[in-house]
Design a protein around this nucleic acid. Sequence first.
DNA 1: ACGCTCACG
DNA 2: GACGTACGTGAGCGTA
Length: 935
Amino acid sequence: MTSDAPAFGKGCHLHLIDGSAFIFRAYHALPPLTRKSDGLPVGAVAGFCNMLWKYVTDERGHDAPTHAAVIFDHSGQTFRNEIYDLYKANRPEPPEDLRPQFPLTREATRAFNIACIEIEGYEADDIIATLACRAREAGGAVTIVSSDKDLMQLVGNGVDMLDPIKGKMIGPDEVREKFGVGPERVVDVQALAGDSVDNVPGAPGIGIKTAAQLINDYGDLETLLSRAEEIKQPKRRQTLIENAELIRVSRRLVQLDCETPLDFTLGSLEMRDPEPEVLLGFLAEMEFRTLTARVAEKLGAEAPAVVSAPPSEGPTAPEQPGIGAAGHDCVTDQALLDRWIAEIREAGHVAIDTETTSLDEMQAELVGISLSVAPGRACYIPVGHVQGEGDLFGSGALVEGQLGLDAVLAALKPVLEDLAILKIGQNLKYDYKILARHGIRMAPIADTMLMSYALHAGIHNHGMDELAERYLGHRCIPIKDLIGSGKSQIGFAQVAIDKATPYAAEDAEVTLRLWQNFAPMLPSEQVTTVYETLERPLVPVLADMEMAGIRVDGDVLKRMSNVFAQKMAGLEDEIHELAGEKFNVGSPKQLGEILFDRMGLSGGKTGKTGAYSTSADVLEDLAAEGHDLPARVLDWRQMSKLKSTYTDALPTYVNPETGRVHTSYSIAGAQTGRLASTDPNLQNIPVRTEEGRRIREAFVATPGHRLVSLDYSQIELRILAHVADIPALKQAFRDGIDIHAMTASQMFGVPVEGMDPMIRRRAKAINFGVIYGISGFGLSRNLRIPRAEAQAFIDTYFERFPEIRAYMDQTVAGAKEDGFVRTLFGRRINTPGINQSGPAAGGARRAAINAPIQGAAADIIRRAMIRMPAAIRDLPARMLLQVHDELVFEVEEGAADDLIAVARQVMENAAEPAVKLSVPLVVDAGIGGNWAEAH
DNA sequence: ACGCTCACG
DNA sequence: GACGTACGTGAGCGTA
């Protein structure tokens, strides 16, 4: 044998990929996709390519393959049919739309520059067996990428398996777990147990369990068969004696053949990088836009244009347009609108986007609606454009020729509420609220922003412009081109209709295309459940909460604001006097110069800008040294913060129509699954200081109602106890004892009774530190104790609760291996920075440790929120706010206790049935006329 | 537009 | 042995 490739031998690592398994997996995981241009079914090819791409870009450490091949089954009879003519006889024909994809997967493999192997008359399993044996003999290592149990007989002596779906290594232990015997006896067990999938007969009435027991008792199959008379159970004895020959045939069927003739050397399987032109050419030809773009980015090559050629039938066959290239309908007459509605009904789905006068959904007026049903098919329906651009006084009159808003909504309502028609949006909560204010509640819905969030949290943000650029290679028309920016900005209603049409229709079409892109990725990335149970159902729930809003008493805030202003003025005088000069107390720069340059206090500069840090930390240290000025500044800052951010700003958010404040929750904002609240942020209303907490007195119940607050007690620590499996912590939660006191007691060996509050405080800080990825430095700063002391605490802690360190190490290792971590509920949080080096590494590491815990808590309250509307349906109550571990309700006086009972039940059981926690979830509740009382 | 500071869980 | 560090957010202000 001659070959250019170097010989295969010691130090080499051969990966053998079970191609057929990949294909079937891809086929069943994905909806039936077809190539745009000619309708060729390509779903399985797409999935296959995605898996292959994921596989080749998967960064492995020392396990990285030096050689690789993808092995396929060759159609037709094999030697096993000669042994047993019914072998695989009950296997159904592959589906019609899968068959044309088989040759394409071979082509794909070659495009990836990976050896593609199939041999007539031999099954892939035999080829894999032969290659594994040869490689093992040559002294190399082998990994079989497959989860096929028939291959497990090959495991051991340098051969292992990788389950590509679960990402799990399969070694002798896993084989033993599955078959009850070691790899070398697997064929014996299979021969006895048979296999209905391959139609291997085996012994009737004997399954894997019994087979393993028998083999373990007698050593091997031949011994068993020859001593079958000794078997005690009469039925079993008879079966084995009667079917001895069938069992021997079965054994020959399951025994893989290590003697497949090969016409190539192992050395020739050496890994090669793909040729960018070849691979990109193939992917573009298949019209896989996303993957083409992704591969091009990774290979640093330019992505070839993915143009879907027109269907060849049809007389004119216009070229398939890029986004917007075909032009978009501007719908200004009823007949055209009706045609669009018919088209939507035919498609069964529609992407929708609304254009309005404001980003505030509670005040926004509809200006237009855009729709799209397919690439190249999008329209814009203007309904609220007014005279204006250039018209200084803007007569405010509607531009003529538009359909009436009411008529358009009346026509669309049946479609938008039709449960058979999917409404697709990008950040659909916005459009949902706009339409809800007009009496239309869209269902069912899909949201491309949330799809992206489920798939790509941690990698990038999920705004439409960014998604269009990344996944469609398309740059959206900037809104600035229409409305301008800064002072001369105009409202969307003032934009000319002919300018608005391409912009608005583009948004709908981009959304539709993103949906087509993401929908098949959800199953292949295993985030379908997350999207379907934690993201999508939250949209109407949050929309209702936001529309409900919460009543805020502006007068209370006004009075507080005056008090703060007076206190600030007094403090400012004092500060100026202490400084010996007047300066802007609110300027950190000026303050720094006063403190450190003029007064000569000790304190360092920070990195980037070279400015002095005047953060509360620093000022507190200075104040502790006995300096009055920093102490006064701290007081001033507290007042200033409360005044500007809360007492002054909140009243400006009160909606004049409802008299309430309507926050907006972003579902896809935080990396971990938490919500974020904006405009205004109602998740950071003060509570920690007495003065701050009084701001909550301004959040009041409607007359005749009460506010009810329910919050999870220690939910993150409970999740930690569960996921890290810490017996001491779990028991403490089960017993309902003070968790921080327990920690202190265990660490310092002091009784819980009569514990020094200082000791408990330290334990508490450590407990929280653990959730954040603790460090001696951080703890020492938090507790203001020497670093060595903090480190000693941490050491003691890990000694006492060793499971926590194991959990942390495991989490980080998983993140490094997979590039993501998952919560208990399957939420995927990508950790692209985890393999960085340098200072950033520590941050990425801590984020990876924290994400599954914070994320699981977020998942749990999401589950509770999604179930809540149905649970409280018969109560005179509304859910108003979510603050990470707290839900705030408004309820008619008299029904508060009922509400608490129901809501508590929902919250405490929110993890189930998906996850059965080994610790109880506990919810505390409060009732009051305002939020301060209720909390 | 960006960094600093500080409010929350 | 040194490095730099708690996790996740949003808003208002000063400065460039």
